[in-house]
Write a protein that binds this DNA or RNA. Sequence first.
DNA 1: AACATATATATGATATTTCGTATATTAAAA
DNA 2: TTTTAATATACGAAATATCATATATATGTT
Lengths: 115, 115
Amino acid sequence: MSTPILSPLSFYKCLSDDTRLKALMLIYLEKELCVCDLITALELSQPKVSRHLADLRKCQILLDERRGKWVYYSVNPKLPEWAMKVLELTAHNTEAYLNEHITNLNMAKQSECCS
Amino acid sequence: MSTPILSPLSFYKCLSDDTRLKALMLIYLEKELCVCDLITALELSQPKVSRHLADLRKCQILLDERRGKWVYYSVNPKLPEWAMKVLELTAHNTEAYLNEHITNLNMAKQSECCS
DNA sequence: AACATATATATGATATTTCGTATATTAAAA
DNA sequence: TTTTAATATACGAAATATCATATATATGTT
């Protein structure tokens, strides 16, 4: 048994901000998203999105991977299983909360961002 | 389908403070606890515990019931099922985080508080 | 009625979080 | 090598959360 990579408290602190919670849910549902996708989906400024993604990265909930000009974020597969299940439950039971952002995301995919 | 009694964001905001998260986990595990049990288990001041319980009550995660001089708190059974499962997963996968408080609680039960 | 006990709330001080703006970094393109 | 595009970070201001202390309320006891 290794020590868990994050405490329950820091995990839930990460989920306690609107931007972080929505970004995390969208990344969970889509497997991976680049920053520009999230800027469009959430209709927020670039620094605001980057700052919150950095929070999620620093507590190891998200991994980042640069590919060319773009940085892609995905859920860290090493998350404790209980935390992964929490993300699963939340993502699949908060449609109303995510609705418009998923719509934005689908529209974004037809446009030119990170093509 | 009725509207959910709480948004995912306000749910997670409630879990994002050490006192609230621990109190909620203990109440979940014990079914119900009175305020004096929590003061002992968490080793915190009475106003601090009451204030955080009030937060959990106001967003309808907890119910309160007065019996004589004591007020007992329990998890609201009307919580959305996904949220209830989140509590279940968290309570049963954060032993290290709750350990000493459960010890305190068991010691408290042998003493005179709310007997 | 006066008192004691358990709990709740008000208040102002302090700490923490979030934000907008400006700037830095990195990689590709020209 | 200059420029452009995508992303990250620094910094001070503003908003929000938390706290300790004092006080209020509610119940039971004498």
